[in-house]
């Protein structure tokens, strides 16, 4: 469903601090599978996720999402594609303080312009799936780390994306919560979602739900292991 061919990303091109974060990466990601990007810090995992998730454009190469070339799309369409195709779980949760759980989860749907009732119903369903519906009205600041993590997954699911992208999702979680998180991802996988994770946490890449591990180093892919 996602194909990258010869993708290169150069930061600050032409300037003194020019840095090549990705070199000539070609890979494809199949639907319905869980893929882990594994590699040391600075190897380019976050950069690769950003490119796949339509957040930034590659300096060279092509990215196809569902057979559609996205690198040349204007910003609005790129954002639209991102919003409808990808759900993001960030390392720091990045929830908005002062808002309630339900308000946070709804945010990605705001630009879509669906009727409020529909939006709210879907939000409650998602909260139900993630078993935090009783926290719907709580403020973000009051949540425990595990609950916050669930809320951030709920937010990623809001627009019913095909792909869930998670960057170092377990970095701030203890072992128990990390395992719980992987269980939730397993649940998503069983619902047909494609999952893409960047992590160097063994709890993640040794987890049984993982189908494929891609190893990265210095902006290149150094190995790929299929488990399923």
């Amino acid at each position: 469903m996602i194909q990258l061919s010869a993708v290169t990303k150069v930061y600050n091109a032409g300037k003194q601090n020019e840095f090549t974060a990705l070199r000539n990466i070609s890979m494809s990601i199949d639907p319905g599978r869980v893929t882990v990007l594994k590699g040391p810090s600075g190897s380019g995992k976050t950069t690769l996720l950003s490119i796949i998730g339509c957040m930034i454009r590659p300096t060279a190469g092509r990215v196809l999402v569902n057979g559609k070339e996205i690198t040349s799309l204007p910003e609005r369409f790129l954002t639209g594609t991102r919003r409808m195709t990808f759900g993001f779980v960030f390392q720091q949760f990045n929830l908005i303080k002062g808002l309630s759980v339900i308000e946070n989860v709804m945010l990605p749907a705001f630009p879509c312009g669906d009727p409020y009732g529909t939006m709210k119903k879907r939000t409650l369903q998602i909260l139900d799936i993630l078993k935090i519906e009783d926290k719907a009205k709580s403020k973000i600041e009051w949540l425990s780390g595990g609950e916050a993590q669930r809320v951030s997954i709920a937010r990623a699911l809001m627009n019913d994306p095909e792909v869930i992208i998670a960057d170092e999702p377990t970095a701030h979680l203890d072992t128990k919560l990390s395992e719980e998180f992987m269980d939730i991802l397993g649940e998503m996988k069983s619902r047909g979602k494609t999952v893409l994770i960047a992590s160097h946490d063994p709890i993640v890449y040794d987890c049984k739900i993982i189908d494929r591990v891609v190893e990265m180093r210095d902006g290149t892919i150094t190995g790929s292991e299929n488990r399923a």
């Binding site: 957040m55 910003e75 609005r76 954002t79 919003r83 630009p111």
Partner: peptide, 11 residues
């Protein structure tokens, strides 16, 4: 965050 989760500049 808003831009990250899919808000456009215009939004």
């Amino acid at each position: 965050i808003l831009k990250g989760i899919g808000w456009e500049t215009s939004d």
